[in-house]
Amino acid sequence: MNLSNFGMDSITLAGPLESKLNASKAAGFSQIMLWAKDLAGHPGGLAEAVRLVRASGVRVTGIQVMRDYEGLSGSLHEYKLDIAKNMLHVCKAVGAPLLMVCSSTSSHASGDLSLISHHLSKLATLAVPLGVKVGFEALSWGRHINQYEQSWEVVDMANHSNLGVVIDSFHMLANQADFDGLEDIPSDKIAMVQLSDFMWRDIRSAEERLETARHLRVFPGEGAHSKELSDLLRRLDKGGYRGDYSFEVFNDDYLQLSPEIVASRAHTAAKWVTDQVLRRSLNIRQPSDGHPMMA
């Protein structure tokens, strides 16, 4: 694990697309997670946004975010499916290998797990010819899927090679999740790991959960859950995950700072993360001959 495994999420940085790309690259990151609105909202249009991204040399790890997709029926399902198809084409245009899908919060969505898995499988199939994979993430306030174990359950049910689960540390910490369930997820079925923390030990209401998630996250190493994050990182590493990590940090304070300053903080966080994983083998004892050996 090194810096090449990490990237920023553009939602963390202030300014236009070009400044986000430049700040991220200047801080030493070779990859970035983009939001579709970064591209669609570019003053020069989508084609110019794509040109900027490709010219930057920064690898796009994925596109955020398809919301409230699964579990719908009738015209609602057809509408969301059409939106998803368009987002898949955005992924292809910018060279993003992953479309992020977060669990539905819609009151119109069914909780039928077989239907949810079917809808995810349908989207994963549509993504195949475009060279894009689909990653499914459990929002901690999702209506029916709000635990990472549940997101894995429906991904496993779908049994589609082009579909994986997204591990998000914020939602796991917010739910006080039991990390033991990570052992059940094959490393090749983890599509992405998103990392962030927050500044208090617990979340006391649904309102505080949303406020924290959307405005008050911090980088790993800056928050109140460093011990839990260290445990999560070591478990993922031990389980064989060698894919990308994205710092998905929604923070209004960071949006008042220059993107260069925030990207520097992200670089510090990347070093903190790698340090936690490297320390996994520090349980060492000294035998009588003075040579260290593993305990």
Rank of each mutant, 00 (worst) to 15 (best):
Y148W: 12
S140E: 07
L123E: 09
A124V: 04
S140L: 01
W141E: 12
M157F: 02
N162S: 13
G135N: 03
Q150N: 08
G135V: 02
A138K: 00
W141F: 13
A138Y: 01
W152K: 05
S161H: 13
Q147Y: 15
S140M: 06
W141I: 13
E137H: 03
V134F: 11
A124K: 03
V132E: 09
W152M: 03
L123S: 14
R143N: 06
M157D: 06
G142T: 01
T125L: 08
L123G: 08
G164K: 09
T125Y: 11
L163W: 07
A158F: 11
H160T: 03
E137W: 02
L130E: 10
L126D: 09
P129Q: 13
H144Q: 00
M157T: 14
V155F: 02
E153V: 05
E149L: 14
N146P: 00
L123I: 11
V132G: 02
Q147H: 15
S140N: 07
F136L: 00
T125E: 15
A127P: 05
A127E: 03
P129D: 13
V134N: 05
W141V: 11
R143A: 10
G142F: 00
Y148I: 09
E153W: 04
W141P: 03
F136P: 02
P129R: 14
N162Y: 10
V128G: 14
Q150T: 10
H144M: 05
G142V: 03
S151D: 08
Y148C: 11
P129G: 12
G142L: 01
L163N: 08
S161N: 13
E137T: 06
S161R: 15
S161L: 06
A124Q: 02
G131P: 06
